[in-house]
């Protein structure tokens, strides 16, 4: 019983890890997209087209009543792939995911045009093609970085700490700090310099 239980999660993870590579050659698709982005390579684009277009066509036929609209989805999606390939980042996900996003967005805008008579093309604001989420990640990292910075400051000798905190966190001038801590200006300057050297080493190491 115990053995069976421990086996279960492994099976699940096995299914998941092979999920992406089973039938589709993802590396090849990425290569083609890269060729299109960097060299405007028509041959690579033709390969991508032959792979995606018939499938897009089939999916679109299930969502739109007529052939012409399905063709419009194929045309718009593939032309977006041609014009936006440079926005694809292989580190962020599979080529299929990216093309799916492009196709879904085109479909959404076209459906909205038909149903609500609006040509406001909102889809790229709802599902950004060029990972807008990056900005979000970024602020998150910044926040972590601040935390890390604080930890490094906290590790300094107390005499250096109060100078660094006063100067950077409380935004006091070196002169103000000298008066405040009742120390010569030269001492403030040298403590600040020593502290920064130490912090640089620490942060540098942690960044590697």
């Amino acid at each position: 019983m115990v053995a069976a239980q421990t086996k279960l999660p492994m099976q699940v993870s096995h299914v998941k890890s092979t999920h992406m590579t089973e039938n589709t050659d993802h590396t090849q698709l990425c290569e083609w997209l890269k060729e299109v982005a960097e060299n405007r390579c028509k041959i690579s684009f033709t390969h991508l087209f032959k792979f995606f277009a018939p499938k897009i066509q089939r999916i679109a036929r299930s969502k739109f009543p007529n052939e012409a609209q399905a063709h419009e989805v194929v045309q718009d999606t593939m032309s977006n792939v041609w014009r936006k390939a440079h926005l694809f980042d292989a580190n962020k996900g599979a080529a299929t995911t990216w093309v799916y996003t492009v196709m879904r967005n085109v479909t959404f805008d076209l459906l909205r045009k038909i149903k609500n008579n609006r040509e406001d093309n909102l889809s790229d604001d709802i599902w950004p093609i060029a990972e807008n989420a990056v900005t979000e990640d970024h602020s998150y990292e910044d926040h972590l970085e601040n935390k890390q910075l604080l930890r490094v400051i906290e590790a300094l000798p107390v005499t250096q700490q109060e100078v660094v905190k006063g100067f950077y966190l409380m935004e006091m001038s070196q002169e103000q700090l000298a008066t405040h801590l009742n120390l010569p200006l030269g001492t403030i300057k040298s403590r600040l310099r020593l502290a920064l050297v130490k912090m640089k080493v620490q942060l540098g190491e942690e960044h590697d």
Binding site: H19, M20, T24, F51, K55, G93, A94, T96, V99, Y100
Partner: peptide, 9 residues
Amino acid sequence: EQVAERSFD
């Protein structure tokens, strides 16, 4: 990712 994989596979 899953929906994309299913759509194009």
